[in-house]
Amino acid sequence: MTELFDSRLASKQTAFTEIPIIDISSLLNGENPLQVARQIGDACEQVGFFYIKNHGIEQPLIDEMYRLTKSFFKLPYEEKNRLNIVNSGPTLRGYIPMYAENVDPANTRDFKECFDCGAHYEEVSPFFGPNLMPSTLPQFQAVAETYHSAVLSLARTLIGGIALSLDLPQNYFEQRQRKPITIQRILSYPPQMGKVTQEEIGIGAHTDYGFLTVLSQDAVGGLQVRNRAGDWVTAPPVEGTFIVNIGDLVQTLTNDRYTSTMHRVINTSGLERYSIPFFIDLDFDAVVEPVPTCVSEALPAKYAAYTCGQHKFKRFVDSYAHLQDVAAV
């Protein structure tokens, strides 16, 4: 019998409790932020991923974002491609066709479509500028901007919890996030049929480039997280939650106390999978180096300082074919 699944793609179907679920209501309302911060810190140290419940974002807004996400990806290719990300210049916003972004290009072609937007700015610079929006979906821009604003506020609260978990003031990172790089992404993962190999999956194994990712995933599933033993563990959808993970910046800032965790998506469900990740980083010019509470004489800094924007742009150059000839910022 023909093997229909590459053994390199195997994951353990585990209970979602193996990735902790954290009730963040006491962080949001200020009743007991330190207790929640300790749970966040434990999750960042042990897993790099955690679910959050009682997050304060209304379900109707999430549902409407999914409705418009599905409507966008059902548009004719020619209409979507008029919004191609290559047309946005250094702003790097718009439609990303199948195979146009590959996060693990040495091993995998990404079998997905994306659309990126963010906070609107008139002036164009790397990661900032105007959004390219679908004119045939008149509600899309308003809903996407409302969703972006809501999740940005949530992300800032979570980052305050991370600061507390590191024995820093809750507002410690705010001085480096006055105008942070943010990306509001929507994703469509077509189902993969027949033999599935590592050479082409939904999204290849990668760590996230920035500070924090707040992900809404639909009921289809397909997200896998690599644990500390090197095993791939399924991260199933959990109703009423977002799944949150830390990125490369946090690993640097914490001097490897918290590590950015490899993850990937493989959609063999037979259904289209949709997800809505929100990415937040630091300001473009913010200096990234280990924070004081994560450095000591016994544990000196492992990282030389770098700037957030330079790091992120380099990762984009690695992922996007149309940037291969562009010098790093």
Rank of each mutant, 00 (worst) to 15 (best):
T197D: 10
I19Y: 09
D208V: 14
I280F: 05
M193N: 14
S11W: 15
T136W: 06
D42N: 07
L132Q: 15
G161E: 02
D281F: 09
L83K: 08
V291H: 00
S88H: 06
I96M: 09
A235G: 08
L168K: 02
Y258C: 02
S216F: 11
F316I: 00
G41V: 00
E45F: 06
L152G: 02
R185W: 11
I62K: 13
D23G: 03
I243S: 08
R178T: 11
A328S: 04
A328K: 01
V244I: 15
S7P: 05
H311M: 02
P76F: 12
N87R: 11
Y121T: 12
A142P: 00
V220D: 13
K312P: 00
L152D: 13
P191T: 04
T146G: 00
E58K: 07
V326W: 05
E272M: 13
Y320I: 02
V326G: 00
I22H: 14
K70H: 12
A327T: 07
R273L: 04
S165Y: 08
G247A: 12
S165M: 06
F73P: 06
K179F: 13
Y77I: 10
Y189M: 05
I162V: 08
A321E: 09
N32S: 11
C117Y: 15
D218T: 13
G161Y: 01
Q59S: 12
L154K: 06
P277I: 01
W232C: 06
S11A: 15
F16Q: 07
N29P: 01
P134Q: 10
P90T: 08
A100Q: 14
A100F: 08
R315T: 00
Q224N: 11
K53S: 09
A150F: 03
R156N: 06
L9M: 07
A10Q: 13
K74A: 14
G30D: 11
V244W: 03
C117P: 09
V295I: 10
I19K: 09
P191C: 09
T268A: 12
P277L: 06
N227E: 04
Q175E: 15
Q59M: 13
A144V: 05
